[in-house]
Write a protein that binds this DNA or RNA. Sequence first.
DNA 1: GACGGCTTGAAACGATAGTTTAGAATGATC
DNA 2: GATCATTCTAAACTATCGTTTCAAGCCGTC
Lengths: 227, 227
Amino acid sequence: MFKAMGTTITNNDITTIGTRERLLAAGLETFAEQGYRAATVREICKRAHANVAAINYHFRDKAGLYGEVLRNACEQAREKYPLVPGEMPADPEQRLRISVQQFLRRIFDPGLQSANGRLMAREMIEPTEALDRLVGEVIRPQCDQLQAVVRGILGADASEEQVRWGTMSVVGQCVFYHHSRAVVERLFPDMSLGSEVIDRLADHIATVSLAGLRGLRTRGTGANGKP
Amino acid sequence: MFKAMGTTITNNDITTIGTRERLLAAGLETFAEQGYRAATVREICKRAHANVAAINYHFRDKAGLYGEVLRNACEQAREKYPLVPGEMPADPEQRLRISVQQFLRRIFDPGLQSANGRLMAREMIEPTEALDRLVGEVIRPQCDQLQAVVRGILGADASEEQVRWGTMSVVGQCVFYHHSRAVVERLFPDMSLGSEVIDRLADHIATVSLAGLRGLRTRGTGANGKP
DNA sequence: GACGGCTTGAAACGATAGTTTAGAATGATC
DNA sequence: GATCATTCTAAACTATCGTTTCAAGCCGTC
């Protein structure tokens, strides 16, 4: 279908899918690689084997294409890796393990979603107007799902802030390896991020998070902890 | 001295400090706000009340200014908030609490360092050539320090990977609130990030991390955890 | 006060960005 | 097969970018 990273749309695709779809694919790839600003419409159109004016025709302008690319990518990520899949065990700890694993797999999907992850990372650091819609439509529902999972571990008497911050602790550990990928790679050049490592990493994060959340359960909201 | 966020160099500064220093201050502010690519030399020079050619004269080119800005900012952050201050308690848990607190304070320093934090965040997502030097000179030493603190909690028999991933779990929680600030702010508009909240947040992260790391101590490297 | 060094200033240069335009090609409808 | 809206193409347009140029200003030295 779309394409592998680093290459360009194949000649087959030119005839099989329309210009609009090729622009979306090339846009995802290019925006993820270079960011919104650095990515040029000429480069995107070249990769999509389309005319320079194609973006303005199909998406009004560059920002229009970007918004559509972002929406598309998130939708696909959510479908392929739901944080709370249909069949979930009742055990709260197992639920958290699965959510963490899904999160990591999504972020590090070697195919299309890798571009997706980088795109999201950029959007968070340098938010465009597209972020507001994205948070409302895609991120917040998933955040609520995760908070429910965390609440299952903290217990019903946990404060709203404990649930919120506890959830952010889990999410923070997950996205770190992706957001700070450039630094991690330079710090630990021997550390690969293949799918086997990702699953072990998911297990590590889940273990740390479970023990950490349990530790939160027996304390207050976190007053300084000195004896 | 330099200036508060959002404003421009005050008229007083124009006479008190030299063009080179004003360019560094304006560059830090502008690069942090808009990123390397989007920040224009005209904007920077305007904020610094300097001529368009000033950057090329003092720093060879735009990239030269950026490299100097990045180096300066990191140096100041490390001096103001050392992760492992001179006087540190012997207790490993207290050591971790202090390191986490220092890390968060550094990242969220409302003054100059806030720009610093955003600058670093950008550099991680869209690394420039300056990142290699930065990791080697500034980040790696501090990573080693933190790993030593974590090792003090995990115990001497912890594997290298456990220490490494455990440290990343702590760092991940800290930087998350900053890197993903745009999303966090939209998800929880009521959550301020003032200094009082930051210290409570530091306590939360330290508590979760300590319990999490202790949970790691009693297990293997993290095989799936099913009974 | 003339000299020679740094430093600043206004203007222009060349390159590239996003966008627009007008016409050609296409393809379905009657 | 003519008609018409849709889609594509090549070229030009306008704005802005980083950089360069060269003359003018400043300031201590002899």
